[in-house]
Computed example of a mutant assay.
Amino acid sequence: MTEYEKKITIIKPDDWHVHLRDNKILKKVINYTGKFYARALIMPNLDDPITNCFKSISYRNRILKSMNWNYKFQPLMTCYLTDRTIPEELEIGFLKKIFIAAKLYPYCSTTNSKKGVKKISHITHILERMEKIGMPLLIHGEEVNKSIDIYDREAEFIKNTLDPLRNCFPKLKIVLEHITTKESVEYIKKYGSNYLCATITPHHLILNRNDMFSGGIQPYLYCLPILKKNIHQKALRQAIASGNKHFFLGSDTAPHLHKDKINFFGCAGIFNAPSSLLSYVTIFEEMQALKYLQSFCSENGPKFYNLPINKETITLIKKPLKIKKRISVGNNIIIPFLSGKILNWSLEN
């Protein structure tokens, strides 16, 4: 068997952290996710956040309407938590499967988070209800405080917020999303359980903060949480290579138009949907850990969310693939992650 005939067949993966935006951008980016993934957990931080059942149903319908009819794809919706979230509506949404989980954005922590939660104490009654009904809490885990260095926000969040939160609500299911630090890896390895897991993105596995400033500032590598030192990158790579079932795939693909990335106040986010799964395969191969690829991509996530594992499979072939340099959206463009780069893996057919 030659290098270009090498194939890997795994259960079709799910992406447990996806931003699709809305309108023209949604219609342009959705099929990149649908091509590789059977299900995706849709983040609710639109310009008008998804804060109730009605908005969630409407957004889900827009997603399905935008999807290529050839793809068997299921969007899994989440609720944006605010100080005004009504626990009864959250419970109804969860029990009727309108919501799979609820998302906690600390105030001003990332894109469209100005309606996020300023203090955890403001939503204690909501978290009590979520713990009672078994509804997962998804957390953008950064402590937002001007006195805290941006590179330390994640570690400070674990110490100041996550640990006390877990002590108060020991049976609240929590996903620490898009982790980026050695501290987070060690925390999940120590406390990971049916009540605590974490997602890891391809860009935090492939890159470290040196890449963001290589040859001049690289605005398309600006994301939140921000890229960290290589010691943290190595910890993330070792975590997925260990086969630990408490880590799973969450790409945090986040499209922004070129004009919004290249701006006085450039937006944070990396659009990696065209290459995310192929990037994960590349990393697992580099780490000599392909035996854990399927569990990370296709099994650990559904088990945490108490959902069935997909029956469909997907085949990846060792064949070069060039990532598009740009994607047109009307009169604008989106520059994808690894724009113009050649990857060693492709999707069969």
Rank of each mutant, 00 (worst) to 15 (best):
L205Y: 00
K190M: 15
F247P: 03
S193T: 07
G330H: 09
Y4S: 10
I206V: 13
I25P: 08
K35H: 11
T161I: 14
L64R: 11
L104H: 11
G243V: 03
H203S: 00
A241L: 07
A155W: 15
S113L: 05
N210P: 09
K118Y: 13
R237A: 05
I86V: 14
G215K: 06
F36W: 07
N52F: 11
I314A: 01
P255T: 00
N160L: 11
Y71M: 08
H140T: 03
D211Y: 10
T199K: 00
N306I: 14
I100P: 11
T2D: 15
I123D: 04
Y151A: 10
V329F: 03
N52L: 15
K72L: 15
F213S: 10
Y59Q: 05
F99R: 05
L162M: 07
K303M: 08
D15C: 01
F169W: 08
Y4W: 15
M212P: 12
K114Q: 13
L162D: 09
G340F: 04
C79K: 13
D152C: 14
N230Q: 12
L249A: 08
P202M: 00
K291N: 14
K228V: 03
I262W: 12
N300C: 04
I226T: 15
F271Q: 00
Y105N: 02
K190Y: 11
E143M: 09
H19R: 03
K319S: 09
H258K: 14
K35F: 10
L138G: 02
P219K: 07
L127D: 04
G141P: 07
L338V: 03
I63D: 00
P13L: 06
A239D: 03
A273H: 01
H232F: 04
L278F: 00
M212C: 12
S56R: 07
L41Y: 09
I10E: 01
D149F: 13
T253Q: 00
K55V: 13
I42G: 05
E88F: 12
G215W: 09
T315R: 06
K132C: 11
I323F: 00
A40S: 06
T161N: 15
G266E: 03
N194E: 11
I327L: 02
D22L: 04
K118P: 11
H17V: 03
G93W: 06
P44C: 03
K7Y: 05
A102D: 12
A102E: 15
N331C: 10
F271D: 00
E3N: 14
Y292K: 07
H246L: 06
I217P: 14
